[in-house]
Design a protein around this nucleic acid. Sequence first.
RNA 1: GGGGGUAUAGCUCAGUUGGAUAGAGCAACGGCCUUCUAAGCCGUGGGUCGAGGGUUCGAAUCCUUCUACCCCCGCCA
Length: 561
Amino acid sequence: MKEHITGLIEQALDALIAQGQLPADITPQIQIDHTRDKSHGDFASNIALTLAKSARRPPRDLATQICEALPSSDLLTRTEIAGPGFINFFLSDSSNQAVVRSILEQGDRFGHSDVGQGRRVQVEFVSANPTGPLHVGHGRGAAVGDSLCRLLAATGWDVASEFYYNDAGAQIDNLARSVQARCLGLTPESPEWPDDGYRGSYIGDVARSYLAGDAIDAQDQHATGAADPNDLDAIRKFAVAYLRREQDLDLKAFAVHFDLYFLESSLYQSGAVEETVERLVANGHTYEKDGALWLRTTDFGDDKDRVMRKTDGGYTYFLPDVAYHLNKWERGFQRVINEQGADHHSTVTRVRAGLQALQQGIPEGWPDYVLHQMVTVMRDGEEVKISKRAGSYVTLRELIDEVGRDATRYFLVARGPSSQLTFDIDLALSQSNDNPVFYIQYAHARVCSILRKLTEQGDSWDADSGLGSLQELQEEHEKALLRRLDRFPEVVANAAATLEPHTVANYLKELAGDFHAWYNAHKTLVDDKPLRDARLALSAATRQVIANGLALLGVSAPESM
RNA sequence: GGGGGUAUAGCUCAGUUGGAUAGAGCAACGGCCUUCUAAGCCGUGGGUCGAGGGUUCGAAUCCUUCUACCCCCGCCA
């Protein structure tokens, strides 16, 4: 529709230029906006305002001329000049109602598009090391990352989701020593407890399971426990598998799927890390200082250079990160999106710098990052500090168990990633009725209920009849709902383009609001059959869009509540 | 000290990328269920869009300077 109006304006401008009313050298940027206030029509353009200066004409005069030059269109009933020089476009009823047919015809594909054109995109998210269960911060990453995958898939991208983790570094050693200490009967209070050991009670669970000889099958890790508390390698392997399995269960409960789990250790085994170092050295972006090997990241916008090989010969974490991203590039992902917590912000510059220093033709701003700000958790009116080492934090699983998967996902995805998020458990529990996710789901369930009622009455609904009598939809509530439904594809496209899933959540809240208002004001199952069928068509279309939108957020659309 | 983020109603937050009179939900108050699900609807009150300056037809939105809070700034990941 926007394209249609843009085309009309273009024709009008061309005509005015041909008549010599406008200078030929203007370069109009035609912008069509949805109106905020329906008294301003359905769409508005500021074209006369932006052209006023170069045309040296008062904007309202210009607007009048443009309006007069507009070709006629079946889709419009009228245009008007308003305010300082806006041109408002009023759509005909039939063009407003056409969206119902589109929705019912396209079904669960309504709102999808093909802007991605089948290009590949990789989304990496969560990427938690297997040193403990997933906490609420990981949950935000999971909710946002998974929703991004769904949005990108819906807009025509070929999406690959990936989870990257370190199964061999210092933190894993720490994990193994912590589990070993538990195997030996130590507790975090013991004087012999390892420095910086993981203190959470789950470490004791891992130790017991190890000693019991349990067999662990995770998505990508398998191990069997042994009785020997002195076999640190066996403990390490077991602990990693055990905690990976825990995380798998967390992710499963959250309905989040990964196409690939990528091990940092594989980059060492394949020689990718060494190769990366050699290329960086060969390209002359490195130097030796204090017995360490440095990368001159300041050449690429960092505020200071970074150590890549430590004096002990080991590599700092960011070097495998660079090797990993080179690997992504070499796998053919011209677009990569990394969703991570904002506390990893400093790695963005370093990884990009390392990739530039490799001189492999990787674009400067590659890869994309979506950084979500911290989640603070409130319980009993107090902030719960997240500390894996101290073992005091709220796990994702606890949240899912307490407030449900749908509410948890919705809460975590409904805010812009760049905003800090407070997850108030007490609020989510005690006032779960006020949770917006129920409000949206309720709208969906209500439509299902109407259709059930129809069936109970021994009646059935004829979609063709409904689509044939859409002109019956003349109530203001119905027009508002039609306008809202029409915007869904644009909302999806915009959310995918800006990587902001929360805009879908906001849209759904508004859509549900429009529906509830209509539902209360006007009965659907009326005796007047054409009107009834038209309303059923509108209801079914609303249900479809709610279901499609919730699917993008990974939230279910229940048929009854 | 440097980098990133945030600041909008009492609280939690939107604000369609610079448009017309800044919006929801909670909380407060008052209404609506013998009628398709009241987890709903309708109404009332509530604002110096952190502060100052700038850009222009037009700013919550862009630029700039401050202020406050959060996160990073390790040869940890």
